[in-house]
Computed example of a mutant assay.
Amino acid sequence: RNGRIIVTEYPDRLVLENEGQFFEGVPADYISGHKTPRRYRNPFLVQAMAELSMIDTMGYGIHEMYAGQRRRFFPLPDYDLSDADVVQMTIHGKIVDAVFSRMLIQKTDLSLEEVLALDRVQKHLPVDDEAMIKHLRRRKLIEGRKPNFYLSAKVALASDAKADYIHTRGQDDVFYTKLVMDYLNKYHSATRQDINKLLWRMLSDALDDEQKETKIGNLITSMRRTGKIKNSGSRRAPNWGIAE
């Protein structure tokens, strides 16, 4: 149909739109990583991109996107197929419910199916799987009555583990943003290394080094997009200051 792929960037999300129906099956078929498409809409393009290392694997893109968001403790991607001739996908870059992120940090044994259901609860979307609802209730992960479920805030808050919980949870972005702004008000500029040094020990102990790098990068991007800071250096060697 010669339609374009439209990518719209918002401060808190990316929205991608593509003309035409979802090519084979539905997105949910591919989330677990157990299904691969039998054919591709443009097999020559897929093969070329794989050989040029522009894509890591063939047939596992949806699974990797969901797994990546889970590793970052962010909401999972959303597909919108309400228009029969358009596929729309939203990738979130901002926390919807801090309790959801806290669950992912603390409960590393959650299955992907459980995370998918909890993600729907935090977005106030229906969960139709009655067995999953009962399972989440037994694990004390959700509260409320159908259809008004909500995530339980009573996650791993044993009285003898409060200090560990605070270190594991970390702080919210408002706290980190204030630290960066206070630094810039005093010293006028900061490199990425300066900001890393400022925030590194403040971040959740549950994050590994790669996740901390990602967390700080996302914070800087958010501050830039909201007009709080600007880069007076280059893309490869940024030098951040307060936006006037």
Results as ranks from 00 to 15, higher is better:
S101V: 06
T36I: 14
G93C: 06
N18A: 15
D194M: 04
M49H: 10
M202R: 11
Y10N: 09
Q193I: 09
D182H: 02
R70E: 10
L16T: 13
S222N: 00
D129E: 15
R236L: 03
A206S: 15
I6F: 10
L219S: 00
K140F: 07
D56N: 11
F149T: 07
E113I: 11
L125H: 14
F74R: 12
N148P: 04
F74C: 06
L184D: 00
H63A: 11
R72W: 08
S82C: 07
A190I: 03
L125S: 13
I216M: 04
E17I: 07
G233W: 00
V15T: 13
D172V: 02
P37W: 08
K140G: 01
S32V: 05
H92G: 05
Q122P: 11
Q21S: 15
G59L: 05
L141Q: 07
I242E: 00
A84C: 08
Y40E: 12
Y40M: 10
H34F: 08
K123W: 14
Y40T: 09
V174E: 03
N2P: 10
K212W: 05
D129A: 10
E143Q: 14
D12I: 05
Q47C: 07
P11W: 06
G227F: 00
S234D: 03
G144H: 10
V87Y: 08
M89F: 04
F175C: 00
N218H: 04
Q193W: 04
K35W: 03
D128P: 01
G233C: 01
G20L: 13
M89E: 13
P238Q: 02
E9V: 10
M223K: 01
L203N: 01
D194H: 06
L219D: 02
G3P: 12
